[in-house]
Structure formats: structure tokens, C-alpha cells
Design a binder for these strands. Structure first.
Lengths: 108, 108
DNA sequence: AATTTGTGTCGTATATTTGCGACATAAATT
DNA sequence: AATTTATGTCGCAAATATACGACACAAATT
């Protein structure tokens, strides 16, 4: 049913990045990880007003896009940002944003 | 059911912007409008692999966030980017992106 | 060896998004 | 005046996203 795949690959990828960032919980996770550098899964769900299960789901989505990565250490799992992907993300977004640079004012 | 409102206003707003940009159709619309400066509604749906109704819905969503604006001209409606809002959007996004600037490499 | 701790997985409920056809309507054209 | 054009609105179906409790399980602790 979804017709997302009928659009240019370029746009699909950019949209997918935007989508990953379209929920405040996921933004909060990224921000928190940027601060703490590394932390275990439980610390994140303590930080957010959501159940552990829901936070886990959001983590999974961020991991799917490789924006973060998890390192299983015994019973705990350390999460951290993936600097590489975050870098690429910024490039993509800046690329798109410059494409819609409406240098002039509104025309209608 | 949604718990979006339990997060900082700041994050909510940024997430809302990302959400508006999370579908390739909406990105395509913005890109197209950036090129043509102004065009009528029908031109946009001709351009996209979606029905007129669906395109109209996406236009409505972009209009809700004031990223675009429509000017009814008789039987036609001219759409164009809202330079003001697009400018603010870039500020917000760059603001957030700088917050997750992981200067160093992955830590786990 | 039994219990606790920290995560992960599954199933489920509800809400939202995506997509469309059918209909409505007002302006332009014939 | 009748028809065509361009857009908007409504209601519906299917897919996805959001949120959680219950359960599973391995490692650490007691």
C-alpha cells in the first residue's frame, strides 16, 4: 500500500532519517547519549517518561538506522551514539536543506 | 495515549518539524516549490506518483506547519514556500544537530 | 543453588498515517 | 444556461507507529 518506494532513492533516504527523528523520545535519547557519551539501557528509560519496553522499541529504531549502537556487557548493554552515521546524517540533512533554500521571500 | 506532550516543548517542536519532513512526497513537494517558486496545486499532483486527494493531504500538512502557503486565485490555488518558516526550521534543526555533536568517536 | 538484576521478545490495544474514490462547489469556458 | 476545470471535503480501508504488561533468560549476586 505504501508508495514511498515510488520516489527517488535520495528522497526516500532523507525522509527515513527525518522519520527516525520525528519523535521527542528519540530526540531525547540522542541528546542524552550525546551528554553521557555512554550509558546502560536502564539509565535511558529512567530518564524518560515511558515504560522500559517502549524505550527499548525506540532504541531499536535508532539502532536500525545505526544512529546509535549497543554493546552487550554481561547483563548490561551500553549504548552510545555512532559518530560516523551522525556525521552522514548531518551531511544529508544539510544537503536537503540547501536544496530548499528559498533565497527570496514568499512569492504568493 | 500519546505521551509526546510529556517531553520538553523544545523537543516536541523539533520532532514536529522532523515529522513534517518524514515522507518523501512532502520532501518532493518542497523541492519542487523551491524550483518553480510558485505553481498551482494541480501541477504538484501531476508531478507526484500519488492521487490528487493524497497530494492535497500532504499539502495540508505542510500548510499546517506554515512551511508552505496557498493563495486562492479564482478556481486555481497557487502554492509557494514560506521563506520565513523555512528559515526558522533551519535554525531549529541546526540547533538540535549541534546539540548531538559527538565530537569524538563512538565510545562503545 | 536460589534470587535478583538488566535486557530482550511477544502479543495486544489504540492512535495515527497513508492512500483513495465519491461527492461538493465555485469559477471559468462554451 | 450548461459544461468543464480546479480544488476542497468526507468517509473508508489498510498499514504503521506508539505504548505497555507479561514472559523469557542469562549474568551477577547472595
Amino acid at each position: 500500500m505504501t508508495k514511498v518506494n515510488l520516489f527517488e532513492k535520495d528522497l526516500q533516504e532523507t525522509a527515513a532519517i527525518f522519520k527516525a527523528l520525528s519523535h521527542p523520545a528519540r530526540l531525547a535519547i540522542l541528546k542524552y547519549l550525546a551528554e553521557t557519551k555512554v550509558c546502560i539501557s536502564g539509565d535511558i528509560s529512567d530518564e524518560l517518561p515511558l515504560s522500559r519496553t517502549t524505550v527499548h522499541q525506540h532504541l531499536k529504531e535508532l539502532k536500525k538506522l545505526k544512529l546509535i549502537q549497543g554493546d552487550i556487557q554481561g547483563v548490561k548493554t551500553n549504548y552510545c551514539l555512532n559518530a560516523d552515521t551522525i556525521g552522514k546524517l548531518k551531511e544529508s540533512l544539510n544537503g536537503f536543506l540547501s536544496e530548499i533554500d528559498c533565497c527570496t521571500n514568499s512569492k504568493c
